[in-house]
Deep mutational scan, measured.
Amino acid sequence: TTVHIGNVTYHFDNPEEAVKWAKEMAEKLGLRIEIHGDTIRVE
């Protein structure tokens, strides 16, 4: 599972961890997340 924040990509072996981490980052940055299969974007 990959999480994209701007130009930076993070890789997670556990999809649930990826979603949890992306949600925390989105809250901190005042952004929202979009999930497309195994790709998560924070925008």
Rank of each mutant, 00 (worst) to 15 (best):
H36P: 01
D13S: 12
T39M: 09
G6V: 06
V8F: 14
H11Y: 14
N7V: 09
I35H: 06
K20M: 12
A22I: 03
G6M: 11
A26W: 03
E17A: 11
G37K: 05
K20V: 08
K23A: 08
M25S: 03
W21I: 02
G6C: 06
M25L: 11
P15E: 10
I35D: 03
K20C: 08
E43A: 12
E17S: 08
L31W: 15
K20P: 02
E17H: 08
V42H: 01
Y10T: 04
W21D: 00
T2F: 11
T39N: 07
D38W: 03
V42E: 02
K28S: 10
V8R: 15
G30R: 04
G30W: 04
R41E: 05
V8T: 12
E27D: 13
I35M: 08
V8G: 07
I5R: 02
M25R: 04
R32D: 12
V8N: 13
D13A: 12
H11R: 11
T1F: 12
H11Q: 08
R32C: 09
A22F: 02
A26I: 02
D38F: 05
I33A: 05
I33P: 03
L29F: 12
D38G: 08
V19R: 09
H4T: 10
I35P: 03
D13K: 11
T1M: 15
P15A: 14
L31F: 14
E17M: 09
H11P: 03
I5T: 02
M25K: 04
V19M: 15
V19I: 15
E16T: 10
E27L: 11
E43P: 05
V42Q: 02
T1G: 05
K28M: 13
K20T: 09
H36S: 11
V42I: 14
H4N: 06
E27V: 07
A26H: 02
F12T: 00
A18Q: 00
L31S: 13
A18Y: 02
A22G: 03
D38A: 11
I35Q: 06
G6Y: 10
N7I: 08
T1D: 02
D13P: 09
M25G: 01
M25H: 04
E27N: 09
V3N: 00
E43H: 14
A18V: 02
T9A: 12
N14E: 08
K23D: 04
I40P: 01
A18L: 03
E43R: 09
L31C: 10
A26E: 03
T9R: 10
R41Y: 15
F12K: 00
D13Y: 07
I35V: 10
R32T: 15
D38C: 06
K20F: 07
I35K: 04
E43T: 15
N7G: 14
Y10E: 03
L29T: 05
D38N: 15
K23M: 14
H4K: 11
E27Q: 09
N14K: 08
T1Y: 13
E16P: 04
I5G: 01
I33Q: 02
L31M: 15
M25N: 03
E43I: 15
D13G: 08
I40R: 01
K23N: 09
K23W: 10
A26M: 03
K28V: 08
A26L: 03
E16D: 12
L31A: 14
E17K: 08
L31R: 05
R41I: 14
N7F: 10
E24T: 10
G30Y: 04
V19K: 08
L29D: 05
T1H: 06
H36E: 13
G6N: 12
H36W: 11
I35Y: 11
F12N: 00
T9Q: 12
E17C: 09
K20H: 07
P15R: 15
A26P: 00
I5F: 08
L29W: 08
E34H: 15
H4M: 13
R32F: 10
V42S: 02
E17T: 10
T2L: 10
H36I: 14
E27T: 07
R41M: 12
P15K: 15
E43N: 10
F12I: 02
A18E: 00
T2S: 08
A18T: 01
I33L: 13
K28D: 06
E43K: 09
H4V: 15
L29N: 09
G30F: 05
G37Y: 04
Y10N: 03
G37C: 05
E34S: 14
R32P: 09
V42T: 04
W21A: 02
E27S: 07
H11V: 09
E34M: 08
E43C: 09
N7S: 13
K28F: 11
